[in-house]
Simulated scan of single mutants.
Amino acid sequence: MNFAFTEDQVMIRDAARAFLGEQVTSTHVRRVMAEAEGYDRALWAEVVALGWTGLIAGEEAGGSGLGFVELAILCEEMGRVLYPSPFEATVVLAANLLSALGETQHLAALAAGDVTATLAGPNAQGQVTFVADGGGYSLTGSLRHVPDGARADLLLVAAEGTDGRTALFAVPGETPGLTRRALPTMDQTRRLAEIEMAGLRLPAGALVSADAGAALTLALDRAAAMMAAFAVGAAERCLEMTVDYTKGRVQFGRPVASFQAVKHQCADMALAVETARSAAYWAACVADETGPNGDLSALARAASGAKSWCSRAYFDCAATAIQLHGGVGFTWEYDVHLYFKNARAIEQVLGDPAFHRERVARLIGLDDTAEAAQ
């Protein structure tokens, strides 16, 4: 077994780290967080030019045809700097789902950077239903906490039909009858929205898939693995900031980092990062090996395990970072404050740790334990 990156993967990591490290500084993050749009369009154009939006799209859709390990590498590097952008919604969610469905028309537009997109479905709270209506479709319902829901050019809306199947529709952001409202959030590096549809009418061509249930399950597990990788990068940055700060902070005539209690807490952070990285990349490997028609149970177990472990490790690292920074850790001027808020938000993305632990328990056969005991 080879647990090391390939030469190409190392190049992707190094190039991403250099680019994001130069462009996405703390000053940049704080500036765009304060703006209504929430991201820098000029920088996003550079990301598109680098080919990142087409990373997992096949060559038939104008993409690079790479896999989820490579995407996890990008997500980890974005997590290190808390890059605020449409990448999560457009690539990790929307392009991922379109790829699982084998759809190329909309995927090509995403890969080329012509549009930004998001998924409005099981990743959000609420429900949308649809009925056939005069050669088209009518959608009704609401969803909350849709990533980039207020600013995405295209929404992939998952709606339940009367036959119990989940269909997927491509809904342009400016469609009449679609109401979008940005939601106030604790972490402004990620923008969430509420969307409402009251008899929203769509033409027949808006239907992307009449039965997208399996593809949604596959795509959301892949996305959970990618968010685990994001958490790894952010957790490692918390460790780095804490080590640097405690080395320079002097108390009682010696660096704070020389105290045993501080050293051991930093060591615990390092262990959390390394175990989280193993979990995240194992899930990414399983995501690469699991196709739309494959056995989804192995991916479900790996993705839920990674999402639960990595998001909790990130939050613990961020909390420890604040503690070891002392009183200044709670001030807005220090970046550990940004990471702490982001860590709490990432815990909730695509299911919190408790949800994923319960899912893993079911997958290893513990769902019927109570019934068996009776």
Rank of each mutant, 00 (worst) to 15 (best):
A206G: 07
S209F: 10
G51Q: 00
T6I: 09
A361S: 12
D148V: 01
M78Y: 00
V81N: 01
V128F: 08
A302G: 13
C238R: 05
D133R: 12
T162A: 15
S311E: 14
V24M: 09
A210V: 08
A45T: 03
T166R: 07
R165K: 14
A319N: 10
A270Y: 07
A198E: 12
T90V: 01
G51S: 02
A18I: 04
R151T: 14
A345N: 09
A152Q: 06
L107N: 05
W44L: 07
A267V: 13
A117E: 07
L207R: 08
M197T: 09
Q265S: 13
A182D: 10
L155Q: 06
M11G: 09
R362D: 13
L74Y: 00
V349Y: 05
S142L: 08
G248R: 13
W52F: 04
R30D: 04
G58H: 03
R201Y: 05
L324H: 05
D368R: 15
G291H: 09
T118Q: 07
A354M: 12
P184Q: 09
R151H: 13
A57S: 05
L350Y: 09
T290M: 10
L93Q: 08
L216H: 04
V232H: 02
T320C: 13
L366S: 08
Q105M: 07
L296A: 14
A15S: 15
